[in-house]
Computed example of a mutant assay.
Amino acid sequence: MDRRRFFAAAAATTAAASLPLLSAGVAQARPAADAAQEQKLTRLMLDALSRALDDPATAAVVEPHIQDIGFNWHPPVTDVENVDYIVAYAFGNRAPAAGGDPAKVLYEPGPVNEALADTIAAIRKQKDVPVFAQWEIARFLESKYGMDRVTSIEPVIAADGTITYLSTDGVAAQVVALRGTSGAAGVVGFRDHVKRCVQTTRDRGMLAFAPAGVEMPGDYDAESGQPWTRRRDLYLLHDMYAQFAVLRQKAITAAYPNA
């Protein structure tokens, strides 16, 4: 086996050993054993990337980003008692039940967003705080739980009825516009989405964490109206693409702020 194949196989073995990072449904701090595995993976990836690029200096800059985006799916966490408000991000949807032009008829919230609403209800039993939830989740908080102090983050509807659904960043921007950035946000999101939800919330100036010990929904909806949210393998690629897009812009801005 040549050295490139050796390092690829070794990295794959280390990644397999850390698969709980990809399957853990509960937001919690990682144990020391995971940190040791990450250090081992870092060494393997740095060596393999340095050889592939023939450029150790560039490999040292790029590798941490590849490792974070590709192998770290844990958001930073805080105890529920530290949370001052909840920010909840939707995941997937269902085609309009009565049909019609999907550009002008709201999609149905779907079962994943109902599960996210259930998660919020469980958190509210621990601490009664205001909720800012994307509309797909807010509908269930209102209809299923009759929950008070819920602000629904709605899509943008143009004068001609055309609907523009908000991105994760668009939802975070609306929360800031509505309440500002004071206090600590407890972020609720789908298991494989929640890390990016926390990052996006922080990028908008909020102090954000996932609530520690809270299990985030992780079952995919094969009937979702968003194809990339139907299967885990497709969604992980989508989420990594989104993380890299944000990183790319930050890196370019940092390198050339006046460009």
Rank of each mutant, 00 (worst) to 15 (best):
M1A: 08
R3G: 01
A8H: 02
A9K: 15
A12P: 09
A12Q: 13
T14N: 13
A16Y: 13
A16R: 10
A16K: 14
P20Q: 03
S23D: 10
A24L: 13
G25K: 09
V26C: 09
V26T: 12
Q28F: 09
R30W: 13
P31S: 08
Q37W: 14
E38M: 15
Q39S: 10
K40T: 15
L41C: 06
R43D: 07
D47H: 11
R51F: 12
L53V: 05
D54K: 15
P56N: 09
V61N: 05
V61A: 12
V62K: 04
Q67R: 15
I69Q: 01
I69H: 00
W73Y: 08
T78W: 06
D79H: 11
N82H: 13
Y89K: 00
A97Y: 07
A98F: 08
G99Q: 08
G100N: 04
A103T: 06
Y107E: 02
Y107M: 08
G110L: 01
V112S: 01
A115K: 11
A117M: 03
K125Y: 12
K127C: 09
V131H: 00
R139C: 11
R139Y: 11
R139G: 05
L141A: 05
Y145M: 09
R149K: 15
R149N: 14
T151G: 07
V156W: 05
I157P: 13
A159E: 15
D160K: 06
L166C: 02
G170K: 01
A177P: 05
G180F: 07
S182T: 07
V188D: 00
K195Y: 11
K195A: 04
V198H: 04
Q199D: 06
R202I: 03
M206K: 03
L207G: 05
E215A: 12
M216P: 01
S224F: 09
P227Y: 06
R231P: 01
R231Y: 09
D233L: 14
Y235H: 03
L236D: 03
L236S: 00
H238V: 07
Y241N: 08
A242Q: 06
Q243S: 04
F244I: 01
A245Y: 03
V246D: 02
A251N: 14
A254S: 13
A259N: 11
A259L: 14
